[in-house]
Design a binder for these strands. Sequence first.
DNA 1: GATGTACTCAAACACTGTAGGAGAACATCA
DNA 2: TGATGTTCTCCTACAGTGTTTGAGTACATC
Lengths: 242, 242
Amino acid sequence: MSAKPSGDKGKKTLENAPGAVWFRAEKTSRTRPQLSHERIIATAVELLDRDGVQKLSMRRLAERLGAHATSLYWHVATKEDVLDLALDAVLAELDLPDEHSASWQGDVEAFMTGLRSVLLRHPWAAALAGSRPLLGPHALRSSEFAYTALATGGFDGVHLSSAAATITHYVIGSASSEAVWRRRSDEAATRSAVDAHLRAHIDEYPTLAGHFPLLEEDDWDAHFHRGMRLLLTGLTSSEARG
Amino acid sequence: MSAKPSGDKGKKTLENAPGAVWFRAEKTSRTRPQLSHERIIATAVELLDRDGVQKLSMRRLAERLGAHATSLYWHVATKEDVLDLALDAVLAELDLPDEHSASWQGDVEAFMTGLRSVLLRHPWAAALAGSRPLLGPHALRSSEFAYTALATGGFDGVHLSSAAATITHYVIGSASSEAVWRRRSDEAATRSAVDAHLRAHIDEYPTLAGHFPLLEEDDWDAHFHRGMRLLLTGLTSSEARG
DNA sequence: GATGTACTCAAACACTGTAGGAGAACATCA
DNA sequence: TGATGTTCTCCTACAGTGTTTGAGTACATC
């Protein structure tokens, strides 16, 4: 982070913040595409999958591409751009039906489980998705699917927005926390350490200590599905609709 | 990030990852507390509140404390520790009743709104909370409150865990996304840019474009409450319980 | 006064994101 | 063919980053 040049380039309103890519004119390669937008992002995803977000640096990314770090800056404006683009790239993997099914609840469920599995396939993605605006084309496409499903369910106006936000937050949040716990190769050791920690303070946290999540039962899928069913119950109740 | 010394210090299992503080023996100052655990964390929170998480560096933190960066490393093991401790410190502000009220739903609501307001008071906190294990004493204390409230509501076993996780994910997720959108001083400009972007692709995202969240209506509180009510409806339905 | 502990700091290492500008490869047109 | 302009890559450099090592100082205790 060097000193800010204090001259604004273009609109200074959107500048370098996460999500800013989507408001910049895309720079496409023409003549000699040794480096291209697609190649950069594909490689970024590959490195993120392998080493996580902390270890991704512009130099490492460039090296993997057989180029030098500064070359990347002709194609992207900032590292944040790379992250935004990589995140939207994995959301492209989200496989949603073209047509909606007969049951809107089924569509909501398809959205949630599909999004979850994409985020778990790329464990760095959930935390990213939870902390930046999701405005890439594939993010919008999947939101559109959720919105239409919920609209079919009778939601409208602000209630539609709230319902969509709620299910999205749940998927991203649970995927993120699942990724956090799974990240460590020493998951078991960590968990028993936590367990010991809780039991040591069992007088302070009696209920928590008695129910330490997922310690006995490793079934993350079931855990996710229980929460999802809870949400679907809430959605189905007519009280919640506009 | 220097080269790993490859000699393990203590257990290498937990090392430097987020959440690792809680498994280290706390190092308390005794004789000459120019720098202390409390002072470091309080100052870290102050700087985080003012400048955000990206701008917090060990050198800046030390400078603010009238000390040098390397001195911090006697008190904390890593920067991750500082973040973990700062996060738990703000969770201490969460004001929960000693006794549970007559209505378990009321308690769940108190937990959710209380947690949300703490996270919004410190806009860097939600994103952090969503991407690391919450194992500090104050995090556990607030979890305990949520667990007991839900237990009163009839949840037990894995259903209790899932219900607690669900409401927590919702609060953290919505606070995080609210913080993301509010962070920018040019919130309005950003939103109208997004709006224009959506309307430009209205054929691709017709439902989404018609309901762009919160563009017309700025009421984040109402948005949050609608989602919360949806969750409470789901929780109250007997289907969801164990 | 001596000894050991508690704490701070200076120096250095191996990195980081990114700006500025020089240079090479190519497309186009004269 | 040569000249010109564009497209892309790279070298150099800056101002930072987290962290380690080891030296040094102030204090409590004996």
